[in-house]
Nucleic acid binder design. Structure first.
Length: 542
RNA sequence: GCCCCGAUAGCUCAACUGGAUAGAGCAUCUGCCUUCUAAGCAGAGGGUUUCAGGUUCGAGUCCUGAUCGGGGUACCA
C-alpha cells in the first residue's frame, strides 16, 4: 500500500514537472481523523519550490489520481496529505489473511541470507542468572523474527572452559568433595558458594568414594562440574523454548592454531607493536578507543581479545552474510576492539551487528533483590521459569527495548490476574476461540460473502491494524527490536477487545454474524502468528 | 578523567526512527456482567518530555554543554 501511494505521488510530481530524487516518505497515521496513510511531501518541498506547503499540497492533490482502493485524500496543516482507504480495501484483507494463514505477516525479505546469532555465551561456571535470561530470550526472539522474514538463522553459544573461572570451579568442587568426605576444609572467598557445587561433589563421592581426596589438580573436578552445569543450562533453556545449533568452544581456536595465525596476520598488517615486553594491538588506528594488549608479558599467553577476534573470523570463514552478537552491557567495552581487529585484517565489518542490552533489576514489592553469582544470592533463571512459566518470562524480557534497564517486577510477573500484561494478549486469543467454538456448535459457517457489512469503526480500525502486521514484522527485523511486536500485539488486542465489547459476533442477523466470524478468524491468525513469533503460547481456553 | 546506555504521568515503560493534540499498563477514583470468557470495556484525575542553548517549516527524537542514575574503563573473561 505504501509503495502504491508513493507511485501515485510520483505521478503527481511528474505531471507538475517537479524533480524530487529522494524517496517519498509515506507513513501510517496515529489517529483515525488523519486517515490511514499520510505523507509530508509538501513540507519537504517547501524549500525546493519556495512556496508555502499548503499551496504545494493543493497543487499536488489536484494532480493525484485516486485508485479505487483509496476513498479520499485530505490536506491538513501544516502541510500533510492524508489518504483514506475505502472500507472495501480494508475488508479485502480478510480473505488475504485467511488465505496465507500461518504464513501471514512473514516475508522473504531476508532472501535466504545466512545469519549467525550469538547469544548467552556464559561460561559454564554455574546456573544461568536472570541477567542471562534477558539475553537468552532477546537473542532467541531476534533469531525467530529473522527466520520469519526469510533469513536462514543459526543460533550459537560461545564458551570458554579453560580459564581462571573454570579452575576456580574445579577447586570449589574439590573443597565440597573433601567436606563430604569429612575433612574440615573451607571454601575461600573466591570460590563458588552455590548449592549446585555440593550436588556435583556428592555425585563424585557416590561414584568414586575418597579416591581423589588428595588429588586437587585432577581434571575430574572441573570436568564433572562443567558437564553438570551445561546439562542444567540446556535444560533451563529448553524450558524457555530456546535451543542452540552450535556450542562453540574457545579452546578449539587454540587447538586448530587459529590464535597464532591471527596474531601473525595482525603483525603482518603492521597492526601491532611491542611495549613493555607485551604485544599490543593498534586499536586506536582502527576505530577503537585505545590500544590493548594482545599477548601478555607476565605470562606467555593471549588476552581474551585475541581469541575473540579469532572466533569472529571463523564466522566470516563460515560464510555468514550477517553476524549478530547479543551482549550484556558489561561487555560493551570489548566488542569495539574485536571490530577494530577485524577491520585491521580487512573484513567487512558492515556485516556485524551488535545488540547490547542493559542490565536487569529484579524487584519484589518495590525492593531490589541483590544479585551476586559467586555468593549465590541470585535468583536463577531456572527458578524464575519454574515459578512463573515460560510465557511470562519471555514476555517480560522482551517487552522493553534492549537499551533500557529492565525492571523485572516479580510480584507483577507472578500475578495471574488482569494486572499481568501477558494475559491480555492470550485472553484475546482465548476469547476468539471460545466464540468460534460456539459458532461451530450452532453449525454456523463463516463466509466472506458479505464482508461489506463490516462498516463499524471498531471493525475497520481492527482491520487496519491487522493489515499492518507484515510491516511491523519487517520493522522488528530491520531494527532487531522484538518489543515492536509486543507493542503492536497490545494495540491489536485492544482493538479486538473493544470490538468484542461493542458488537456481539454471533447474533440473530446471520449475514453479519458470518462476516464477523471471518473477521475474528483473521484476528486469531494474526494473534497466533504474533505470539508464536515471540515464543509465547496462544491458549484456546483460559 | 575517558567511553557506552539511560532520564518522558505517582510507578514501570511506549512513541512506527524528525511530524499533526506525547500514548499504554499499574496505582487512585467512577460506571458496565440474565446475551459469544469482566484475565474485558468506558470515563476521571495525573506532563514545561531533567536543565540551558542550537539546527529545522516542525524536536521527546538530531547537535553542544550541564545535572543525576547504571555499566565499563586490567597484561581477568
Amino acid at each position: 500500500m505504501i509503495s502504491n501511494i508513493r507511485d501515485i505521488l510520483e505521478n503527481a510530481l511528474a505531471s507538475l514537472d517537479i524533480k524530487y530524487d529522494n524517496q517519498i516518505h509515506v507513513e501510517r497515521t496515529k489517529r483515525v481523523e488523519f486517515g490511514h496513510f499520510s505523507t509530508n511531501l509538501p513540507l519537504v518541498l517547501t524549500k525546493l519550490l519556495r512556496q508555502p506547503p499548503l499551496k504545494i499540497a493543493e497543487k499536488l492533490s489536484e494532480k493525484i489520481k485516486l485508485p479505487d482502493s483509496i476513498d479520499k485524500i485530505e490536506i491538513k496543516p501544516p502541510g500533510f496529505i492524508n489518504f483514506f482507504l475505502s472500507p472495501a480495501t480494508l475488508q479485502n484483507f480478510i480473505p488475504e489473511i485467511l488465505e496465507r494463514n500461518e504464513k501471514y505477516g512473514s516475508s522473504d525479505f531476508g532472501k535466504k541470507q545466512q545469519v549467525l546469532v550469538e547469544f548467552v555465551s556464559a561460561n559454564p561456571t554455574g546456573p544461568l542468572t536472570v541477567g542471562h535470561g534477558r539475553q537468552a530470550v532477546l537473542g532467541d526472539t531476534i533469531a525467530r523474527i529473522l527466520e520469519w522474514n526469510g533469513y536462514k538463522v543459526e543460533r550459537e553459544y560461545y564458551y570458554n572452559d579453560a580459564g581462571r573461572q573454570m579452575r576456580i570451579l574445579g577447586e570449589s568442587t574439590f573443597v565440597r568433595y573433601r567436606q563430604l568426605l569429612g575433612f574440615d576444609d573451607e571454601l575461600g572467598e573466591e570460590h563458588y558458594q552455590g548449592e549446585y557445587i555440593k550436588d556435583i561433589a556428592s555425585e563424585l563421592v557416590e561414584k568414586y568414594g575418597n579416591k581423589f581426596q588428595d588429588d586437587c589438580d585432577n581434571e575430574i573436578f572441573k570436568n564433572s562440574a562443567e558437564a553438570a552445569v551445561f546439562k542444567d543450562i540446556k535444560a533451563t533453556l529448553k524450558k524457555l523454548a530456546i535451543h542452540f545449533d552450535c556450542f562453540y568452544n574457545e579452546k578449539s581456536l587454540y587447538d586448530s592454531g587459529k590464535i597464532e595465525s591471527v596474531l601473525k596476520d595482525l603483525k603482518e598488517k603492521n597492526a601491532t607493536y611491542e611495549k613493555d615486553g607485551a604485544i599490543w594491538f593498534k586499536g586506536s588506528e582502527f576505530g577503537a578507543n585505545s590500544d590493548r594488549v594482545l599477548w601478555k608479558s607476565v605470562a606467555d599467553e593471549a588476552t581474551y581479545r585475541l581469541p575473540d577476534i579469532a572466533y569472529h573470523i571463523t564466522k566470516y570463514m563460515r560464510k555468514y552474510d550477517l553476524i549478530i552478537d547479543v551482549f550484556g552491557a558489561d561487555h560493551h567495552g570489548t566488542y569495539p576492539d574485536v571490530i577494530a581487529g577485524l577491520k585491521a585484517l580487512g573484513y567487512d565489518i558492515e556485516k556485524i551487528k551488535v545488540v547490547i542490552h542493559q542490565f536487569v533489576t529484579l524487584t519484589q514489592g518495590g525492593q531490589k533483590i541483590k544479585m551476586s553469582t559467586r555468593k549465590a544470592t541470585y535468583v536463577t533463571l531456572d527458578e524464575l521459569t519454574n515459578e512463573i512459566g515460560k510465557d511470562v518470562v519471555r514476555y517480560f524480557f522482551i517487552m522493553r527495548g534492549a537499551n533500557s534497564h529492565l525492571n523485572f517486577d516479580l510480584e507483577l510477573a507472578k500475578a495471574e490476574g488482569d494486572e499481568n500484561p501477558v494475559f491480555y494478549l492470550q485472553y484475546a486469543h482465548a476469547r476468539i476461540c471460545s466464540i468460534l467454538r460456539k459458532a461451530e456448535n450452532r453449525n454456523i459457517e463463516p463466509d466472506s460473502q458479505n464482508l461489506s457489512l463490516l462498516t463499524e469503526p471498531e471493525s475497520l480500525n481492527l482491520l487496519n491494524i491487522l493489515s499492518e502486521f507484515g510491516e511491523i514484522c519487517q520493522l522488528a527485523a530491520n531494527s532487531l527490536e522484538p518489543q515492536q511486536i509486543i507493542t503492536y500485539l497490545q494495540k491489536m488486542a485492544t482493538a479486538f477487545h473493544k470490538l468484542y465489547t461493542e458488537h456481539i459476533v454471533i447474533s440473530e442477523d446471520i449475514e453479519i454474524t458470518k462476516a464477523r466470524l471471518q473477521l475474528i478468524k483473521a484476528t486469531k491468525i494474526v494473534l497466533f502468528n504474533g505470539l508464536k513469533l515471540i515464543g509465547i503460547s496462544a491458549p484456546e481456553r483460559m
